[in-house]
Structure formats: structure tokens, C-alpha cells
């Protein structure tokens, strides 16, 4: 079979909606693009643990301390699940976890724009759990149909656990919304702080980047950024309003004629800075991760024992 014939056969499978498995033949473009996507997803989960773990030591009740710990732990767990899937696919490329994680630290692999932002109050922990995780579920649920079988399978578990995270975040936000005037104000300020990030979360509407096109072509993704953002509004805007919170955008409204939400465009140039790891806390958070990675290198070497120690870069 020629390469062209194999490729045609592969594309026919994709178009029939079949699932691709790690051991199947696949074009390099598929493998490389997917590894990159899953690597970014996995490491974003790992980086996503950091803004919330900042609040574990300060969580205001024993019950909150426990649920936030469980939530942060789940994020690491999602990172682990997805990283394992990425590792299996990356193996023929000669890349192991060491390289995949290493590329985060050198800036070759990006992490999600939303995790470059500060979380200065307890209400931020609530907003992250409720709305950032809400946005994550919207975008991840859209990937449950992904053409790559192993990824679609782990996402089922990830999405189920995200359901718990949203309940956890809602619970914090509901308590603050029903609390003292100071607590309510703290919640509104956190929403004000995160609103633009929630818009940036899904990326620009008119994205036609090379990798986005490839992901669509292979039916790894099937929904556009704007479709997902609108879906997020559908679900969360009524809830935000029902808590008596204000969306910090005077032009925000339902456009009946267009059957979509109208919103003021966020400052998209911020995404470019974040992509260069020049967001507000990009370097701080990468610094934490780099430090912990270097500080514990000797431990990983010890797990391999003397014989393997020399093999680690």
C-alpha cells in the first residue's frame, strides 16, 4: 500500500466516525498535532492546580480545606490521565514524560491562558471552581467525540470529576453570595477580575491557526471557539444573574435577532503575551513548577535506583 492509499484509508475511517487507537497507523501530522494538544491539556491541568493550591492553606473552614484539597488533587489526576495518553502516543517520536514535562519548563509547550492569572482572594478560588471549571467542562465535553479513542475515554472520567468541581465552586460562591456584605463584595470583585479571562478562555472567534485547522480536519475537535463561548454563556449567565451578581460589561446582552449573546470583545493582545509566557503570573507559576521539578530530581533518580540514575537528563 502506498502512503497515499493508507492516508486515504485513514481519512475514510475518520469520516466514518471511527475511533483511532494508539497502535493504529496514522499520518505523522495527526500524531504530532495530537501529542501537542494533549501535552498542553495535561500540563494545563497540572499548572491549573497551582492557583487553587495557593488557597488550601487559607481555606476558611475544615470542610472547605478538605474539598479544595480534593479538587486540586483531581486536577493533578486529570493531568496524570491525559499525560499517560500523550506519552503512549509520543513514544514513537522518542519522547517520554521527561521530555513532555521538560518542554513546559522551557516554554516550548504552552499552558492554558486562564492559569496565568492571579487569584488574590478566597472568592477567586470559588470563581475558579465554578466558572473556570464550568468553561473547562464546556470545552472538554465537546471533545468527548474526539477521533482519538484513548483521549475520548479518559475525558469521560475527567468530565465526570469536573462535575464535582463545579458543585464545589458553586458551593463556595453561593455561601459568599448569601453571606455578609463584605463577602458579597469579594465575590463580585472576583467575578470582575475573571470575566475577561473567561472570554479569553475559549480563544478568538476567527481563529484559523494551522493547528486548529488540523484538529478540525481530523475530527479531533468539532466545535469552534465561538460556539463553545456561546454555550458557556447559555449555561452560566442566567446563574450569575440569579445570584444578583453583575456582569462587568455594560454592553453584555442577549441579541434576539442574532440568537446569540453580545459581549464586548476582550483585549485579545493579552493572549499573545500569555503565549510568550508573559502573562501576569506566567513566570511566577512556571518558576514554582521548575523549582519543584529541580528540587525533587534526586527523588526520581532514587526511584530508578543506581542502575538507571545515569539515564536521566
Amino acid at each position: 500500500m502506498t502512503h497515499e492509499e493508507r492516508l486515504a484509508q485513514f481519512m475514510a475511517r475518520i469520516e466514518r466516525g471511527e475511533k483511532i487507537e494508539s497502535t493504529d497507523w496514522m499520518p505523522d501530522e495527526y500524531r504530532i498535532t495530537l501529542v501537542k494538544f494533549m501535552q498542553m491539556h495535561a500540563l494545563s491541568e497540572v499548572m491549573g492546580a497551582l492557583p487553587e493550591k495557593e488557597w488550601v492553606p487559607k481555606a476558611p473552614t475544615l470542610a472547605r480545606k478538605l474539598s479544595l484539597m480534593a479538587k486540586v488533587q483531581d486536577e493533578m489526576g486529570h493531568g496524570q490521565l491525559i499525560l499517560r495518553v500523550a506519552e503512549d502516543l509520543a513514544k514513537p517520536l522518542g519522547k517520554s514524560r521527561e521530555e513532555l514535562v521538560g518542554e513546559l519548563l522551557t516554554g516550548v509547550c504552552k499552558f492554558h491562558n486562564v492559569f496565568h492569572m492571579p487569584a488574590p482572594t478566597w472568592a477567586d478560588a470559588g470563581i475558579i471552581g465554578w466558572l473556570v471549571d464550568g468553561a473547562a467542562v464546556v470545552s472538554q465535553a465537546a471533545l468527548l467525540d474526539s477521533s482519538y479513542g484513548p483521549y475520548a475515554r479518559v475525558l469521560q472520567r475527567v468530565c465526570a470529576e469536573e462535575g464535582f468541581h463545579i458543585q464545589h465552586g458553586e458551593s463556595i460562591c453561593l455561601a459568599l453570595a448569601e453571606g455578609t456584605p463584605e463577602q458579597r463584595q469579594m465575590l463580585q470583585e472576583a467575578l470582575n477580575r475573571w470575566w475577561e479571562s473567561l472570554l479569553l478562555f475559549f480563544g478568538p472567534a476567527d481563529t484559523n491557526s494551522a493547528s486548529a485547522t488540523i484538529l478540525m480536519k481530523y475530527r479531533f475537535r468539532t466545535k469552534t471557539n465561538e460556539e463553545l463561548r456561546q454555550k458557556f454563556f447559555d449555561k452560566y449567565v442566567p446563574r450569575i444573574w440569579s445570584l444578583g451578581l453583575t456582569i462587568p460589561d455594560p454592553d453584555f446582552r442577549w441579541n434576539e435577532a442574532a440568537q446569540r449573546w453580545h459581549y464586548t470583545q476582550p483585549d485579545w493582545t493579552k493572549l499573545k503575551a500569555i503565549a510568550r509566557n508573559e502573562g501576569p503570573l506566567s513566570q511566577y507559576r512556571l518558576g514554582l513548577r521548575r523549582m519543584s521539578y529541580e528540587q525533587t530530581k534526586w527523588v526520581r533518580e532514587a526511584l530508578l535506583g543506581k542502575a538507571g540514575a545515569g539515564a536521566i537528563a
Binding site: E87, G94, S96, R97, E98, R300, L303, A313
Partner: peptide, 8 residues
């Protein structure tokens, strides 16, 4: 370059 082993 594998660091650990993979266990299913």
C-alpha cells in the same frame, strides 16, 4: 530515556 515503567 524512559524514566519509569508504565504499568496498566
Amino acid at each position: 530515556m524512559d524514566m519509569f515503567n508504565v504499568y496498566e
